[in-house]
Simulated scan of single mutants.
Amino acid sequence: MRRLLILALAGALLAAGLFTGNVASAVVIGPPPSAPASAAEPATPLLAYYYVWFDPSSWNRAKIDYPTLGRYSSDDTGVMRQHIEWAKSAGIKGFIVSWKNTETNNRRLRLLMDVARAADFKLAMIYQGLDFDRHPQPVSRVAADLSMFRDQFAPDPVFLRLGGKPLTIFSGTWEFNHDDVAKATGPVRQDMLVLSTEKSVDGYRRLADVTDGDAYYWSSVNPDSYGDHSPKLAAMSDAIHRDGKYWVAPFAPGFDARLVGGTRTVDRKDGETLRVQYSAAVRSAPDVLGLISWNEFSENSYVEPSLKYGTRSLDVLRDLRSGAVPSAPSAALDSSSLAGPGRGAAGDARRGSALTNVGLLAGFPIVLIVTVGLIARRQRRHGRDIPAQRLPSDPKGTL
């Protein structure tokens, strides 16, 4: 009878597996719903442009949305820590910090460096080559600021290195002539990379001999009106890589700068714009992916959790970086209900898998009892009355 019961157990397991179309699913339970889906680490680092210019009064100008963290100051290290935690959860490896040499910017950069270093999070720097009115800074100031950054900040290991040198970007190079860019970058390029921010292959080539590549800050591209913008990014990548230099490819979740003098808008389309632009950036074979932006609330290109959009952009970005199925739309959330890793469709699928396994285990005793009953009936028909026995895996005889 023991042998028959063991056979019955195996048969019941096989039958249960057939109900699900997969024998292994009858005996293997997947990860708990809270466990994130495993995926290979993306090879290309993702950095988000990050701004440290916020005071509480900054939020009173040209804003149509606000962070879930409130109208914060960029001196608040608690805000910095939360930003980095959220960014890491979505696959962002570092921030490209907007900077020029002022007392306020230096203080805030040092605070951010301390927080990022403790969190094993990388930084890069984009120099503010244009002033508030979009005019170029005096080249003497640019050169002095870049030299000061090289001496006081760049040696810190918190800054991302490519080819052994810390990554920096010179914003607004299109407003400077070739010789002025050379004066600014020449003294520092032995110790750090300085990328231009040109908008075309011709623009990059104009400065190729005095810079180390290009980081195109293309926040306003509209995939609907521009069509497939991938060829432009690919052409820039090809030209830069032929020179053995570095390419930072841009992508953004949307854009609206009308309150700061702009006229163009790009609808977020519930995350679809972010997906399309991310795909185009990845196809250009970049050395770094440059997300525009973490917190540019004046141009409305931010992915930081906000009152209007909640965590939608980070949820989509997390799916893109993990290779998971895109999550369902999320409503705007307050800071007490922000989504974390494992939320969305991927988490729902794991929960569905767990429920399937629970149902399977619940039905298993029924299948087993019916099978044992049929065997017992067959034995009685042959005139044999075998006493009940305990299976080795059931020492209490409760089966």
Rank of each mutant, 00 (worst) to 15 (best):
S225C: 00
D348H: 10
K232E: 11
G344V: 11
R110Y: 08
R258Y: 04
D131V: 04
N101L: 05
G310R: 06
Q152I: 07
T265E: 04
Y302C: 06
F176D: 02
V276I: 14
P387Q: 03
A15L: 13
D145M: 06
A239I: 08
R377I: 02
S98D: 06
L123F: 08
I369V: 14
H382A: 15
V52K: 09
Y50R: 12
G227L: 09
R81G: 06
S293Y: 02
F170Q: 07
A143D: 09
T265Y: 00
R110L: 15
A208W: 04
S74T: 04
G30V: 06
L130G: 12
A285V: 13
L355P: 00
S353H: 10
P45L: 05
A10I: 15
A144P: 07
N177E: 13
D131Q: 04
H241N: 05
A331Q: 13
A215Q: 04
L355D: 10
H229I: 04
W247S: 02
T102N: 05
S284Q: 05
S293G: 08
A285S: 13
H382I: 07
Y127P: 10
Y226C: 11
D120Q: 14
F364S: 00
A281C: 07
R107S: 11
A48Q: 11
V266F: 01
L9V: 07
V372T: 09
Y226W: 13
A119T: 01
P67Y: 10
G11K: 03
A43Q: 14
V288A: 02
W99H: 12
E41S: 11
R3N: 11
A362D: 02
S147C: 08
W86L: 12
R61W: 12
N222T: 10
R206I: 00
I292V: 09
H135E: 11
A37T: 12
L5G: 09
A215S: 14
P36T: 10
G244L: 03
W247G: 01
R107K: 14
P155K: 07
T265N: 02
R321Y: 09
R117L: 00
Y246G: 01
G310P: 02
N357T: 11
L259F: 04
S89Y: 02
L130R: 09
L162C: 04
S171M: 13
T371Y: 00
I126G: 01
F159T: 06
G91Q: 01
L160G: 01
G91A: 06
H135R: 13
K232T: 08
P136W: 04
L207K: 04
L193H: 07
D214A: 12
F54H: 14
S225I: 12
A349T: 09
A119Q: 06
R321T: 12
K245Y: 03
E296P: 05
L360I: 00
T77S: 11
A116K: 03
V188F: 08
G340A: 09
A235P: 01
Y204Q: 01
F121P: 01
